[in-house]
Amino acid sequence: MRKYDVVVIGAGPGGMTAALYAARANLNVAMLDRGIYGGQMNNTDDIENYPGFTTIKGPELGEKMYQGTVKAGVNFVYGDVQNVTVDDQQMKHIQTDSDELVASAVIIATGSNNRKLGVPGEEKFSGKGVSYCAVCDGSFFKGKNVTVVGGGDSAISEGLYLANVTDGVNVIHRRDQLRAQKVLQNRAFDNDKIDFTWNTSVTEILGDENHVTGVKIHNNQVGDDTTLDTDGVFVYVGNFPNSQIFNNLNITDQAGWIITNDQMETTIPGIYAIGDVRQKQLRQITTAVGDGGIAGQNAFEYFEAIKHRQTVKD
């Protein structure tokens, strides 16, 4: 059992910022992640809306943020967190798959995960043509045609990335217009390798024993069903919060997003939530980073208050 002042769960942009602030306030900080640091930035090609960089690759920004935390003295710990409990002394016990950590304060920064389409064939062909990460899997589709499902920022920006590495991209969207930022929309409309199938839902993913060969689609306006040939299906239809492991704490709304006030405090003293996992309007790197700074600073103040109370008692 290792003891820290603050444990940050998740090393995405939110978690790394919170850890940086807490460590710079001289706290002993552990930052836990079940994968490599960087979070969803690792699945992103070009980031063009993080101030200070006209454009930067996701993994590169993750690396830069990580170097900052190392310099500040943050301890990076590998571990898949299973649950968090609070004891009578208000200490937080963080159980991972291989260890237990104890801390005065916990900052939850577990982010979100991609929502699945939930159609037949998706599970079967996952990793065999169905993908949720264009930068991880795009290069397997050189010289091939792929389908992107979705119409938000992620769908269009990753569609643009795929247009660079594949022969052609068909974006299937269930509405008649995109939700993505205008600048991305214009770029996609101007790209010869990208075309659009509007008002359409994917109802099944088809394939042979080895990989995807097509999709069954349903036109929501005309009502007809057809089949399209494709070698790969990249799914970007929204996210769900990585908060199931905190169910015992009762800190989420019905959809699972963690509720906080504007100080990133949950209803449990000393437990904060930041970034994508939090109930909020805009889920972006900049907002995760903003949340992280606030929580890191507040964790420090919480820790100082406990220390003060302890000294008075003694």
């Binding site: 079940r34 994968g35 490599i36 690792n42 930068v135 991880c136």
Partner: peptide
């Protein structure tokens, strides 16, 4: 594996 995939590092 490839250099772009986060889970490859794990």
């Amino acid at each position: 594996e490839n250099n772009w995939c986060a889970q490859c590092y794990t």
